[in-house]
Design a protein around this nucleic acid. Structure first.
Lengths: 202, 202
DNA sequence: TATTTGACATACACCCCGTATGTGTCATTA
DNA sequence: TAATGACACATACGGGGTGTATGTCAAATA
């Protein structure tokens, strides 16, 4: 086995720690996760952890950042599948709702994240999901499909509604809740449409 | 000074603990608040706390329950001021946004609450805010002002949007953010209107 | 090869929660 | 009114967890 370069090992330990933390935080919650146990499962000790991430919060921030990226990528990719931009926006919202059914995302990003790291809109990850929604809205606004709205404000509310719906869906076992939530989401979102588009498309 | 009845004292210690906890949780956050310090400030010890509330979570639940009641009462009262039910709903949403600017509500109900107690819609407080919105929507639906929506789903999304907007408003210092948020909220909410009402009233 | 840097491990101190146990006071009953 | 039981709260203890200070050893550099 060839000797690996130092930088490679460094990146690998970081990744191992983040993976272990992701699993531990998802399973036990942030407060319930023990750093000793977590690092041990990664074959390391707390020393490595504090060296790389400063403290427990820093580790959570790193985990959230990765999850946030994955979410944005998936949601945006789903949105892109639609040629119709408006349907794309709706699909994007629906994607958030479905994404948040993932217990990891639920627990880490939606529950513990805000409590420990503060308001998501201030996260260094820039809340990539929000940015994605904003660009989509920007396009739709230029095309005259949606009213000339304050793009940032609208994007925040749309995402907020979607995420809240996601929590609801996740907490209830009913299968039809997902459909009820997405339907309501479509109705709400239609409030952004211009009157023209609302008659033709909705 | 007349001797007070035992039940009175019991209620008073409960209230003192809740008040102290409310202040401590708001200032230091749930995790950062020490039970020793908190109870000492109330002139008691942890013994009283565990006797009345079981554990730290129980105390938070009690605090949240009180805050939730206060919020619902205020929002509903504001909504009642409007004779027009639709304007009442909008005002109610706006009230949530303003209420959530209160640092206590922000930190305790919106951030720590969900992380520690789980999804708000499962709280024993029944999420009074949500119920208030649902009844309002129910009325509007019967009157034909809003489309025949799934009342619960719509209420959840509307509230979610409002609360998310509140976090945004609270985190940013800009004065005009509040107006931008409320405007966007009105637009979004208009998606629930029937076409008739949307032409006459909006 | 000598030296220095840095990635990690080890050890220590402090804090905090939950529980088990003790104590005094108030209601109740004879 | 004296005894008894329940209850509200205080005290004491044990376990665990975080953060920091210190040590160690390999890799990079000259």
């Amino acid at each position: 086995m060839a000797r690996r370069r130092r930088a490679e090992m460094l990146e690998e330990t970081r990744a191992r720690l983040i993976d272990a933390a992701r699993a531990a935080f998802a399973e036990k919650g942030y407060a319930g996760a023990s750093m000793d146990e977590l690092t041990a499962r990664a074959g390391l000790t707390r020393g490595a952890l504090y060296h790389h991430f400063g403290d427990k919060r820093g580790l959570l921030a790193a985990v959230v950042d990765r999850l946030d990226s994955e979410m944005a990528a998936r949601a945006h990719e789903i949105g892109q599948r639609h040629t119709n931009a408006w349907e794309g926006l709706l699909a994007e919202g629906g994607a958030y709702i479905e994404l948040a059914r993932d217990p990891e995302i639920q627990r880490i990003v939606l529950l513990d994240g805000p409590a420990v790291l503060g308001d998501p809109s201030q996260w260094p990850s820039q809340n990539r999901c929000l940015l994605a929604t904003m660009t989509t809205l920007e396009t739709l606004s230029r095309e005259g499909v949606v009213k000339p709205v304050d793009v940032e404000a609208a994007a925040r509310l749309v995402n907020g509604a979607a995420l809240n719906a996601a929590l609801w869906v996740a907490a209830s076992d009913d299968a039809d809740v997902l459909e009820r939530a997405t339907d309501a989401f479509r109705q709400l979102a239609s409030g952004l449409l211009t009157r023209d588009s609302s008659t033709t498309e909705y």
